[in-house]
Nucleic acid binder design. Structure first.
Lengths: 169, 169
DNA sequence: CATAATGCTTGCGTTATGCAAGTATATGAC
DNA sequence: GTCATATACTTGCATAACGCAAGCATTATG
């Protein structure tokens, strides 16, 4: 047993290319790129715009806060994204009848058309990704990403302070 | 059998929350957040700055283009990131003796110290993530992410045009 | 009915990104 | 040598994204 001056068990040096968060980030960024370029130059959509479009394609008439929850955007980004969609003629913004503080964002036919085009590319990207995996790996990845979604949400929620607390729990 | 007007096999509507690229993006973003906040407010580092610091911590004396390759940054971002590290006293920039067009970026003790602090948090984050998975899942995720890295790189390389080509190979 | 809370929007300063152009060095043709 | 070209990196600037304070309209509360 090494007479340790510090109690740390010789932390490995964190090689970026082997560090899971970095690797996931790279994969996500590389995948997202072609789609962003496509909807950017084809429709002048921002990332927020695309996400909101996808959200209201699935659930038209959603309020801004529902949209924000559904696609992980803060209220500012949602408001601006909706504005963009309205300008492009992809969405209409009205107020909900029940509670007039809430917006009601509905997709237009033109918006559905655009969504359809982008979704085609999106499905192609996903298909290419899944094609590189075996059927077995696909279901496992699915389950693992489920867990990672949950755990990463908790990590973000806790913030860095709770991550550096050594003695607790 | 539905008399289909179009020959398409009824594409599923692309639900954002079930679409693998989006899910990976969310995981990556949620994980990255606490670390970014940490090195941002603790050292005034940008994301590029952090990545470059991690790169030269591993391979001090690297050139700008080597750094760019190692951490997926374009030359502009690398140059500015190095500038930031130099300003913070985390790195020194000299020219390589062999070919004076190449930079040689070395990490300083202060930079190593900062890197150590950030790496501690980085390891904690990775540990939390891995703790949510079984040992079996970890190795499978590792292998799957390997494949996804490769395939997503090819996808990005090809661009959206090659993804929408239906008839070809 | 005054106060507070909620949902959303706008304005504005800061920061990041993308790209043209520039500098410095090295290489190859003649 | 020296002139054109290529390479490695840097800088400047225009544009876009982000973060947040403050605002408006509407509804809930005491």
């Amino acid at each position: 047993m090494p007479l340790s001056t510090a109690a740390q068990p010789a932390a490995p040096p964190l090689k970026l290319s082997a560090w899971l968060p970095y690797r996931l980030f790279i994969v996500a960024a590389q995948i997202a790129r072609p789609l962003e370029i496509f909807y950017g130059e084809r429709f002048g959509l921002s990332q927020a715009g695309w996400r909101i479009l996808a959200t209201i394609a699935e659930r038209t008439g959603a309020s801004a806060s529902e949209i924000g929850r559904a696609c992980a955007l803060d209220p500012f980004a949602v408001s601006r994204g909706i504005g963009q969609l309205v300008e492009l003629g992809f969405a209409r913004r009205t107020t909900a009848k029940a509670d007039r503080r809430f917006a009601s964002v509905t997709i237009t036919p033109k918006g559905q058309q655009a969504f359809g085009e982008i979704a085609t590319l999106g499905r192609a990207i996903e298909a290419r990704l899944l094609a590189s995996l075996s059927g077995d790996e696909r279901s496992r990845i699915d389950a693992a990403v489920d867990k990672l979604e949950g755990e990463s949400a908790r990590i973000e929620q806790g913030g860095w302070r709770s991550l550096l607390e050594r003695a607790t729990s």
